[in-house]
Design a protein around this nucleic acid. Sequence first.
DNA 1: GCATTATGCAAGTATCTGCTTGCGTGTCAA
DNA 2: TTGACACGCAAGCAGATACTTGCATAATGC
Lengths: 94, 94
Amino acid sequence: MADVFKALADETRRRILDALAVRDGQTLFEICSHLIARHGINSSRQAISQHLAVLESAGLVTVEWQGRSKLHYVNRAPLEDITQRWLHPGKDPA
Amino acid sequence: MADVFKALADETRRRILDALAVRDGQTLFEICSHLIARHGINSSRQAISQHLAVLESAGLVTVEWQGRSKLHYVNRAPLEDITQRWLHPGKDPA
DNA sequence: GCATTATGCAAGTATCTGCTTGCGTGTCAA
DNA sequence: TTGACACGCAAGCAGATACTTGCATAATGC
């Protein structure tokens, strides 16, 4: 839960999720190209790779290796958990 | 939007929202007491005050002065905006 | 008025975070 | 097998962030 909020706190990482929402299953290079082309983000490959690692450890992105390429997919389940806890609280959070 | 995620990225600030969810309209001192009693958070008054300022500028908390006391109220509207954008995207976010 | 209470402001510090740089590993194709 | 490609790992650095400390401001009660 904490990891999800921290992952979403960064603008570049939110853009990455946007990119994957447009087309799921992109590789690292494809995501980099997408960010440069559509969002004016000009970070290095390594920077984006580290962002993807954060998103993955937060459960917001799942990966699938295919040869030497790593495909990234969005996972919205953690976001739904957030709404369950913060917008439709069924039980006392304290 | 960015401010909301950054505000929620901190554990103590999420606890503050929890405290206000239990009882809305608390003062700074009441929130401090609540955090110490129920969450084992032992930050100073100033630290909590700064967290409240972050929550307020993110629109997650609204305030109302009553004499020399400042009452804090939760505002869930920004959270609903988040779910609208990330879980029920009506339009292309790119 | 004077002390107390509730809070804000501002500077300093230590830790965290995002980014870069350089190198290493595994995969594919010729 | 050799070179190119896609990616990971690790160290170092600059800026951001959370916290503390000290002082200031405004309202309440005697």
